[in-house]
Computed example of a mutant assay.
Amino acid sequence: MCANFKPLTLGQLKILQLPDIPFDYVEEVYPNYQLPLLFASKLGLEWRQVGFGMVPKWAEDKSIALKTYNARNETLLQKASFINAISKFKFGVIPVSEFYESKYIDNKPQRWGVRRKDGQAFYIAALYEICQQGSEIIRSCTMITMDAIDHPMMKEFHEPGDIKRSVIVIPHSRLEEWLNWKSPNIQSFVEGFPVDEFECSHVPKIKAEKTSPQLNFFD
């Protein structure tokens, strides 16, 4: 499961010619942190500040996000946490510069980072939700995952065993198609990212700050 990643930088934003992000965000995201989500509206591509981890309408508090930051594509219509979002086609992407997974070396987990070789940001498929708890409006999202037992890179991560998962990467060329998709059937997007375009390496964990630096802090 992907529980930690770095959002895109200002430099990557400009290369992709995406709209400016109208709010600050942290350099490294964990469950229940705020992040920039890209979605399609009647006005075109827009950014929304959302929490990492889906908070469904029936949840009593936001702590559920610690369990709902990843969603298996195979069971989206079966899980109470995600059925509303997938049924209403609330598709978005989380643009990232790098995401992290655990690789077990000598039965001990090491944090490894996965990134594009060309340094560009890439889009992770997501669902988003909006709900209200008391007077608070809560916007949240989850990353959609797929089976990765046969993926040349992602099968090397997670605990030893036959359960391997990967985020779903939306190709740059299919971004608007995904954001405007109007069906709960997303199988045409469920495919492993091309290994020849990505690389991975050991990235020891550094304590992240919860404060929100200015966006250009990590350009």
Rank of each mutant, 00 (worst) to 15 (best):
E199I: 03
P22L: 15
F23H: 08
M54H: 08
L37R: 01
V93P: 02
P31D: 05
L13V: 08
I149W: 03
D118S: 09
E46S: 08
N185S: 11
I168F: 06
S166N: 05
F52W: 07
Q214R: 12
N84P: 02
L35S: 07
T142Q: 01
P213M: 11
S81N: 09
L37P: 04
D106M: 06
N84E: 14
H172M: 05
K207W: 07
R115A: 15
E156G: 09
W47M: 01
H172L: 05
E28L: 08
R174L: 13
I105F: 03
F218N: 14
F99Q: 06
L10H: 04
V26F: 00
P204T: 08
Y69T: 06
L35A: 14
L37S: 02
P184M: 10
M1P: 12
V26A: 11
G192F: 06
V29F: 09
V195D: 02
E176Y: 11
S188A: 12
D20L: 13
L45R: 13
K205G: 10
N32D: 12
Y128L: 00
I15P: 00
I163G: 00
D61E: 09
W112E: 08
E176C: 05
M153L: 14
S81I: 00
H202S: 11
V96F: 01
R139V: 00
A65W: 01
G51W: 04
D24Y: 10
F198W: 08
I124N: 02
L175S: 08
I144G: 00
R115C: 03
V169I: 11
D24Q: 11
V29Y: 03
W112H: 14
Q78D: 15
F189V: 04
S183D: 15
E74R: 02
G134R: 07
P213S: 13
I144T: 06
V55C: 06
F89V: 00
W58R: 09
I206E: 10
R115Y: 12
Y100D: 12
P56Y: 11
M54C: 06
S135T: 15
I206M: 08
L43P: 00
S140W: 11
P31Y: 00
Y100T: 10
A3C: 09
E28M: 11
S63K: 13
K164A: 10
C2Y: 08
Y69L: 02
C2P: 02
K67L: 02
D20W: 03
K42L: 13
D162T: 14
I94D: 05
E98F: 01
P184N: 08
A80T: 12
L45Y: 12
Q133I: 14
V93R: 02
R48G: 11
T145K: 04
E101Y: 05
F82W: 05
E98T: 10
D24P: 14
S183Q: 06
L175E: 06
A65R: 02
E136G: 04
A71Q: 05
M154P: 00
C131I: 04
G51H: 10
V203Y: 15
